[in-house]
Computed example of a mutant assay.
Amino acid sequence: MPKIVDPGSRRTEVAEAVFRVVVTRGLAQASLRNVAAEAGLAIGSVRHYFTGSDEMIEFALEVFIERVSVRVLARVDDVRAASSAEARRAAVEELLAELLPLDDERYTECVVWLAFADAARTSPRLQPLLRKLYDGTRMVIRKVLERSAASGNLTEGLDIEVEVERLGALIDGLLTDGVVQPDRMTPELSRAVLRAHLDSISRSAG
């Protein structure tokens, strides 16, 4: 009998190969041919699922967004379940740390994120997906800060909208520096900077 291939699994397998090509050679090299070779597939097999490289890359970005979202939302549940201010503060730090290149998996994701973000600047097809990820990140940050404010854990008088963008910009900067200058912006330093910022807006810091 011919081998039955699950289309969803195969498409995800191709997306994984896109990520590996992006990390090692850059997004510009994520052609159907190169990705097929990386996945160990015939190029005809990849063309069976994607009409071209644009569709393939768009799907890979959708897979990327879903993967990061699932992990971050799991951390949101940890924040909600925290039984004390100290536990909540630690859970918030772990949630935001999911967006930084602190280990091999997250480093790879951050490299992919920067590559997609750069490509989206000139790609109308990718712009809505990058906006979705950007807006989703800001939404999570806003919810975390609003919950902390409601619990009395933030310094009084903070403008939440400004703080959302300030914390988002900090994460964006740490992510970028952690990818392009990993010898300077080490995981330990990234965590220290994030922790110092959270301390600076917490009630205990005032």
Rank of each mutant, 00 (worst) to 15 (best):
residue 203 R to Y: 02
residue 175 L to W: 05
residue 83 S to N: 08
residue 188 E to K: 14
residue 35 V to L: 08
residue 117 A to P: 01
residue 157 G to L: 04
residue 148 S to Q: 10
residue 202 S to L: 07
residue 148 S to V: 00
residue 195 R to G: 03
residue 139 M to S: 05
residue 199 D to G: 02
residue 97 A to P: 13
residue 52 G to F: 06
residue 143 K to M: 02
residue 109 E to K: 07
residue 49 Y to A: 00
residue 153 N to F: 00
residue 52 G to N: 15
residue 29 Q to F: 02
residue 130 L to E: 11
residue 17 A to Q: 08
residue 62 E to W: 00
residue 85 A to Q: 10
residue 117 A to W: 14
residue 100 L to F: 07
residue 140 V to R: 09
residue 90 A to G: 04
residue 124 P to K: 06
residue 93 E to I: 12
residue 64 F to Q: 05
residue 141 I to S: 04
residue 11 R to I: 03
residue 19 F to Y: 15
residue 43 I to C: 01
residue 60 A to W: 02
residue 85 A to D: 14
residue 64 F to K: 09
residue 106 R to F: 06
residue 161 E to K: 06
residue 20 R to G: 02
residue 199 D to E: 15
residue 39 A to C: 11
residue 112 V to N: 02
residue 118 D to G: 01
residue 63 V to K: 05
residue 61 L to M: 11
residue 187 P to Q: 12
residue 120 A to E: 09
residue 84 S to W: 12
residue 149 A to T: 00
residue 155 T to N: 06
residue 74 A to M: 06
residue 40 G to W: 15
residue 161 E to V: 06
residue 172 D to R: 13
residue 116 F to H: 02
residue 161 E to F: 06
residue 80 R to Q: 15
residue 117 A to I: 00
residue 104 D to K: 12
residue 140 V to T: 04
residue 52 G to H: 09
residue 29 Q to H: 12
residue 21 V to N: 04
residue 155 T to L: 12
